[in-house]
Each structure stands twice: as C-alpha cells, then as structure tokens.
Amino acid sequence: MSIAGETGAAPRGLTRGQAWGIVAFFAAAVFAWLLFAVWPDWLNAILISKKAFFSSIFNGITLAGLYFLVASGFTLVFGLMRNVNLAHGSLYLLGAYLGYEVTRITGYWLVGVAAGFAVLAVLGLLMQVFVFRRLEGDDLRQTLVTIGISIVAADLMLWMWTGATYQIATPAWLDGAVKLPVVTAYRSSGDAVFLTYPFYRLVVLAAAIVIGIGLWLLLNRTRVGMMIRAGVDDRAMLAASGVNVHAVFAVVFAIGAGLAGFAGVVGGSALSVAPGEDVRYLLASLVVVIVGGMGSITGAAIGALLIGLAEQVGLVYFPTYGIVLTFVIMVVTLAIRPQGIMGKAR
C-alpha cells in the first residue's frame, strides 16, 4: 500500500507522512490567514461574513466537545463489551435533569455537575451488574434491553419533569462573553471589531479537552487502562490471563454512564434540557462512533469534531439540509473505511 513509506527517505520523492505534513501545513496556513486577516469582500460574499463563519466554527468545536463527552462513554462501553447501549441518550438526559434539580436545591452549579456524574456512574454500575451481566455475550438481546430501558426511562422522565424546557443556571463566574483576538471588521472610525464568544462555551470545550486527555492517560498509562485496552482487543484472552473482567466491565460502564451524566449537566447549562434531547444525543453518539471507529477515544474525538462542525456549519450555510451533511459524512466513512476512521478491522 505505502511503497513510499517502506522505502523511507528514498530519492523517489516524498513519503506519505511528509506529503500529509505539507497538506496539513498549508491547511493550517490558510486557516490562520482566514482567522487573522480582515476578509476581502469576495470572501465575505461567499461565506456570508467572517463573524458568521467563525461563530459557526467555534460553535461547532464546542458542540464537538459536548458530543465527545457523550460519545466517549458510548464508544468505551461498545468497544469493550460489544454492548450497544441505546439508552445512552437517556443517561445524558437523566444527568441533565438531576443536575438541574441539584443546582436548584443546593444553589451550587459544581455540586450539580458532580451529582450528575456520580449518580449516573452508580446507575451505570447497577445496570451493568444487574442487567447486562445476565445477558453477556448476547449482543442483540443486550441491545433490545437497552431499547426497552430507554423507552421506559423517557416516559418516566416525561412524567417526572413534564414536557417543559429547563435551563440549568450557571454561576456568575461562568457567564459573560470574552473577546477573542480575532478581528472581524473595522468600523469607519478605524476601531477594530473583535469576535466575542460566550465564556461558558469555552469552558465546555476546555473541560472536554481535559477529560479527553484524562481518558487517554487512563487508557494508555495505567494498569486499569491496559486491562481495558486488552479487553477491547481480546476479551477472552484477558479473562484467561487472570483478570477479573467483570470488575473491568463495571468500571468502564460506570465511567461511560458517568460521562454521559456529566455531559448532560454541562450540555444542559449551555443549551437546554427537554424531552427529545435523549434521541438527539443518542444520534450524535451513534454517528460519532460509526465515523470515529468503535472503541477508540481518539476516534471519538475526531468523529465528534467532524459531526459538530458539520452540524453547526450546516446550520449557517444550508439550514434545511444540515442533517444531510452529517449523514453524508457517515455514508462516506462507511464506504471508504467501514470500521471507522480509527477503528481496527476485525
């Protein structure tokens, strides 16, 4: 496949890596120019305006952060246990509702976030121990059970919190907007107009990056992570080498469910909490994981970035066909690389 790669720095020309490096360099250069230059009129004519373009890009990236939080749990659970948890969206929504209640009662947003994570982690643990362990090795029935759970959960949440839309109150120190060092235009007086962006969304993005790095470290630098990775590759062999796989499964499921709950509170503060959000985030998780590759955290990050950007850019430039863009990304990925961008062929 990669003849150039095998011959290394042979005089035949560029290696694959070098070629990609040059492409990446030019892409970065174009992006930097787009970011810092004041746009000429023809570019504004094509892309509406610099403000609209970069707002959609930043919105896409922060949404990607949220999608990553939701999908990373989904992909971990799937990669390890072959358990397609279609109740993952319900976990997200339940986390959001719980976060709303806890924040409202205690008055501390951080307590709400912590509660969203902790309660859902425990719930995920219980689900794994009492439900999925009984159906181990039976993918289809596990999936059917998660469908049943999601139906019941959606209905009970509708009963409990009605169809109203909630917004979780964020503390004052997270409110407001920051001025990004990006000049969108110059006023007639010569003053530069900077792009402003909600501070909270940047915090969401930062949280997603921190958690992503944390998960990567957990998976690649700790003993538990080693077991998880071994389980993703070959579950039977891991069990045969004396590891208590059920404990590993339970830990992973708790982390996955906890992350969904965490994302629920964080996302419910940025956007809103309402019935139907569970389906939205389930769809996002599914597509992110299909595109990124099952069981891969890096893949989830790449997939989330693609889908988040596609959704927000689509929203600005072709509003009624935005979902088609997401869909096209999924289909193209399946056509070229059925196992997903970072997935391993099985």
């Binding site: 397609v84 993918d139 389906v279 389930l282 769809l283 299909i290 099952m294 997401t326 869909f327 999924m330």
Partner: peptide, 18 residues
C-alpha cells in the same frame, strides 16, 4: 451491509433518526 452484526442496528437507527 458495509459492516455487519450489531453495527447494522446502529447504522439503521442513525439513518432512521436522520
């Protein structure tokens, strides 16, 4: 059909939702 097994349910659910 590009993938098989349990992936089918995920892909078709994504298609139905989309």
């Amino acid at each position: 059909s590009r993938t098989d097994g349990i992936y089918t349910i995920m892909i078709t659910l994504a298609i139905a939702t989309a």
